[in-house]
Amino acid sequence: MAKRGYNLNNSFLRNIGEGRDVLFWEDLWVGDQCLKDKFPRLYHLEEVKDAKVSDRVSWINEERLFTWHWSRIPLGRNTDDIVALQECVAGQFQRETDINKLLPQSLGIFNWRVTRRRLPVRIELDKRGIDLHTVRCPLCDEDVESIDHAIVLCKYALEV
Rank of each mutant, 00 (worst) to 15 (best):
E26I: 08
I147S: 09
D126W: 12
R41L: 09
G76H: 06
E26K: 15
H149P: 10
L132W: 02
R72L: 08
L35Y: 05
P40E: 08
L8W: 04
D27P: 07
L75G: 06
K49H: 12
N78E: 15
N111E: 09
W70N: 12
L158A: 13
I82D: 00
R64M: 13
L45Y: 01
V53F: 03
Y43P: 04
C88T: 15
L23E: 07
V144L: 14
L13V: 07
V135N: 05
R113C: 11
C154Q: 01
E145F: 00
P40K: 09
E62K: 12
V53Q: 03
C137D: 01
D37W: 08
P104F: 06
G17M: 13
C154P: 04
L153S: 12
E26A: 12
E87P: 05
N9A: 05
W59C: 09
D55R: 04
S71W: 05
N7M: 07
L35M: 07
V114G: 07
Q33W: 02
I123A: 14
Q105W: 15
E124V: 03
K155E: 09
W25Q: 02
T115C: 11
N15C: 06
R64Q: 14
I16Q: 10
L23W: 07
E87S: 10
D148C: 06
V114R: 07
I147D: 04
H44K: 14
L23H: 13
F93R: 00
R128A: 08
V89W: 10
S146H: 00
D32S: 15
R136Y: 09
L103M: 14
E63C: 11
W70A: 11
V53E: 01
G19R: 03
A157F: 01
L102M: 13
A157V: 00
R20M: 08
C88G: 09
D37K: 12
A51E: 14
V48S: 13
L42C: 05
L85I: 01
L102P: 01
L125F: 03
K127P: 09
L85K: 02
H69E: 13
R4I: 09
L158D: 08
Q105G: 13
D37Q: 13
P138D: 08
F24V: 00
L35G: 03
R64E: 02
P138I: 02
L8D: 04
N7T: 03
K38C: 10
G91S: 14
D141W: 12
V152S: 13
N10H: 05
Q86F: 00
E46M: 03
Q92M: 09
R4H: 10
I99K: 12
V83A: 12
V22A: 06
V57W: 03
E63A: 10
F39H: 05
N9V: 02
E46H: 06
D50L: 12
R95G: 03
N100L: 13
V152P: 05
L158H: 11
G108V: 12
V53K: 01
Y156D: 09
N78A: 15
F39C: 06
G108K: 14
D98T: 10
R14K: 11
D21K: 12
D148I: 00
L42G: 01
Q94N: 15
S54W: 11
D37T: 06
H149S: 05
R64S: 00
D55S: 13
T97G: 03
F24W: 02
